[in-house]
């Protein structure tokens, strides 16, 4: 691997950032080590588990498979960007709220990646069917929940975010 370091500019959670890093450094490591955004997790390092999922230019990517040079100029969203105003009294993202109440997170290690996949899913399918939910989350492994509470969380969040679909009684 080249020892050349480059300056790479991109936007993370709405903030313009510049990092000085080897161009082949994994986006995952740049986020965690250079930008101290440790919410994004490594599970397998080979794109199988989805724990490192982030959104890049509106696409869901495994950040362990993205060399940082590919992120030049990109818009990146991580779990830390889902509820940006939380520290100043802001609300959780509807998905976070739903995961909290429906039991969508147990050990929590897959949760940041799962939330990003779920956010992508709901953007694509505001009222996802069970089949769409299963397909949308199939690249994110959870060993704790058996996925059922995660599916329920996505349904609850979609219902919350789309009031015209709200059931009569809760």
């Amino acid at each position: 691997m080249s020892t050349r370091w480059d300056s790479i500019r991109f936007t993370v959670n709405g903030q313009p950032r510049t990092v000085h890093a080897p161009p082949m450094k994994r986006l995952l490591d740049v986020l965690r080590e250079d930008l101290h955004l440790t919410g994004t997790k490594e599970g397998c390092g080979e794109g199988e588990c989805g724990s490192c999922s982030v959104r890049m230019n509106g696409e869901l990517v495994n950040s362990c498979l993205v060399p940082v040079l590919q992120a030049e100029g990109a818009q990146i969203q991580t779990v830390e960007g889902l509820a940006p105003d939380l520290d100043s009294g802001g609300a959780l993202h509807p998905l976070q709220e739903a995961f909290l109440h429906c039991g969508g997170a147990q050990c929590g290690i897959c949760t940041p990646g799962m939330l990003m996949a779920a956010a992508q899913l709901i953007e694509r399918h505001p009222h996802p069917s069970q089949a769409e939910i299963r397909e949308g989350l199939a690249g994110n492994l959870c060993r704790c929940t058996g996925f059922a509470r995660i599916f329920a969380s996505v349904v609850a969040a979609a219902t919350h975010a789309a009031p015209e679909q709200e059931p009569d009684a809760r």
Binding site: R32, L37, T38, G39, T40, K41, E42, T78, V79, E80, L82, A83, L86, L92, Q96, F99, L100, A105, C107, G108, I109, T111, P112, L115
Partner: peptide
Amino acid sequence: GIDKLVGRAQYVDD
């Protein structure tokens, strides 16, 4: 739960 959902929970590699 909230710490885990917002990426604040500190695992050893963090």
